[in-house]
Amino acid sequence: MTFNDMMAAWTFALFSLAILSYLWKLNYVYKIAETFSVGSLLAHTFVNTWTGSIEGICLKPLMSGQVVRIVPLIFGLMIFTRLSRQYAWISRYPTALLAGVGTGVMFGATFDAQILTQLAMTAQAFIDKDIFSALVILVGVFTTLTYFIYTQEHTGAIGISARLGRIFAMFSFGMNYAAELIWYLTLVVGILIRLVDLWIKGAILGL
């Protein structure tokens, strides 16, 4: 194990244990590790944004004669006018442009992608002879929707449908919760594996 690997293993172990110490209670060791994490994340984001987006997309092409690339740069700099009370209004223009373009790019395809495509896939299931799955999805969609009808009392047919819808919703939330649990477990296992392999076996025991 090289000196750099050794340093990396110890840094990883100490920071991991410091963060995990929060399970005991909020303490200074945890706070220091947290501050370091946030600081390094910010630095990492800044460097990547600078090299990839600002330098790569604006500055280098601008230097090579693509004058139009100065426009995003100017819009970007305009955002910093927020720092001055007198000129803060200027920052509204790039913000409006970002929000406008972002919304336009997203909404243009949302109806098609999130509604029509999924309706088509539900219908396709019937065509593909996967009748059981198609029926479950169809019943699930309609009964869950009725559970969220608040303008009608949940009695009679609507009541039965809403109760069935609640069961579908519970299944859905349960599955989401289970998937979330698996995610957290993986993160814990990942830390345990590195603590054992890199720190205990590698850095301490030298295996």
């Binding site: 992608a113 495509t117 989401n176 998937a179």
Partner: peptide, 28 residues
């Protein structure tokens, strides 16, 4: 990804994601 690649350009998408996101991705 579906909005920008599939709906507009008709490209299929494979996904690698966290376990917690599988219920939402399974829609596609």
């Amino acid at each position: 990804e579906v909005r920008q690649w599939y709906t507009i350009h008709g490209l299929n998408i494979l996904e690698i994601n966290m376990a917690c996101c599988s219920p939402m991705s399974m829609n596609y």
